Computed example of a mutant assay.
Amino acid sequence: MTEEELRKRLTALRVEHRDLDAAIDALTSTGGPDQLQVARLKKRKLLLKDQIAMVEDYLTPDIIA
């Protein structure tokens, strides 16, 4: 993948992460009994966070100290 494609992927991952955060907030604020759904969304959010970190690390050049 080119750097531009990686940057687009990073933006998409961040948007999805933000959307999941809003969905989790909405589910928890209603106090519904669907804790399984909340747990699944939180797990997906963590996976996205890991993917975001990987792409950011790839885009950030290593600096030799």
Rank of each mutant, 00 (worst) to 15 (best):
L6R: 08
A12F: 11
A12I: 11
L47V: 08
A26L: 14
R14M: 01
S29L: 06
Q35F: 14
K8P: 02
T28F: 04
T30R: 13
E5T: 06
D57A: 07
I64N: 02
T28Y: 05
A12R: 14
L36K: 12
K8Y: 08
A26T: 13
P61C: 02
E5V: 01
I52F: 04
V55F: 04
G32L: 05
L41V: 05
M54L: 10
Q51M: 13
L27W: 01
L41M: 15
R9L: 15
K45P: 04
E16M: 14
T28Q: 06
D62L: 00
K43Y: 11
R7H: 11
L46M: 08
A26Q: 12
D34K: 10
S29V: 12
R7P: 08
V38R: 06
V55K: 01
D57S: 08
D50T: 13
V55P: 04
Q37A: 13
D25W: 09
A65C: 02
R44T: 11
T2D: 01
Q37G: 05
T11V: 10
V15N: 12
L10Y: 09
A22S: 11
Q37V: 15
R7A: 12
M1V: 13
H17N: 06
R14H: 05
P33C: 07
K49A: 15
K42H: 02
D25S: 09
G31M: 07
L6I: 09
L41D: 00
Q35H: 11
I64A: 01
V38P: 03
R7K: 15
D25Y: 09
E56G: 00
L59M: 05
T60N: 04
L10W: 10
D62N: 02
L27C: 03
D34P: 08
D62K: 05
R14L: 02
T60W: 03
R18Q: 13
E4L: 07
L59P: 00
T2E: 01
L48E: 08
V38Y: 03
L47R: 09
L41N: 02
A39L: 07
Q51A: 15
T30L: 15
Q37M: 14
R18H: 10
I63K: 01
E4A: 11
D21N: 11
D50S: 14
A23M: 13
G32N: 05
D50N: 12
I64C: 00
R9A: 10
R7Q: 14
L13Q: 12
E5Y: 02
E4N: 03
T60V: 02
L47Y: 06
M54I: 04
T30H: 09
A22T: 10
Q37H: 08
E3T: 03
S29K: 04
A26D: 11
T60Y: 03
G32K: 05
A26E: 13
K42N: 01
H17R: 14
G32I: 12
D62A: 12
Q37P: 01
A53R: 07
P61N: 00
D25T: 10
P61F: 00
R9F: 11
